[in-house]
């Protein structure tokens, strides 16, 4: 038997409004800490290399998820990245018009992983797959080790 008693007057249906405010202080982790230090201090990207399968990962990781061993070897990437994919965003997170903002997934030759960031381009049409890009960095004194230390990526 179903519940037969229903609310028939809409105003009798009550709602309770509240929020669950939260504040998080995340640690960057063992590898994340090194990656962020390298970005903050030297404006470079740190990668790590697996001694077993020889895969290089960016951002740097503590362990190789396939071989399941700790990765001790790190290397900063000197070469420019390339556009693996891109999109143009016209609305913000809450759905209000905003932009246009061009976002790219930037990868590096021979490296697994990538970085999602803003692209400093006039218009969407000027972006192409494989296009070489480099980061536009904030001044060293302003950098905090966050990805926002990079203002955007621009064509190399």
């Amino acid at each position: 038997m179903p519940i037969l008693e229903k609310i028939t007057q809409p105003l009798q249906a009550r709602h309770w409004t509240d929020s669950i405010p939260l504040e998080f202080h995340y640690t960057a982790g063992v590898a994340g800490e090194s990656f962020r230090r390298e970005l903050k201090e030297n404006g470079r990207f740190l990668s790590s290399k697996c001694a077993e399968c020889k895969t290089t990962y960016i951002p740097a990781r503590m362990f190789c998820p396939s071989c399941f061993i700790e990765m001790k070897e790190t290397r900063t990437l000197e070469e420019p990245g390339y556009i693996y994919s891109y999109t143009t965003v016209n609305r913000n997170r809450t759905g209000e018009p905003n932009g246009p903002l061009t976002i790219g997934l930037i990868r590096f030759e021979g490296v697994k992983g990538g970085i999602v960031h803003k692209l400093d381009v006039k218009e969407h049409g000027s972006v192409s797959f494989g296009m070489k890009v480099v980061p536009i960095l904030k001044e060293a004194s302003e950098r905090t080790g966050a990805l926002t230390d990079i203002l955007a990526f621009r064509p190399a």
């Binding site: 995340y26 640690t27 960057a28 982790g29 063992v30 994340g32 362990f63």
Partner: peptide, 8 residues
Amino acid sequence: RMLETPKE
């Protein structure tokens, strides 16, 4: 408090 991420 540990430095490691949940993954690590």
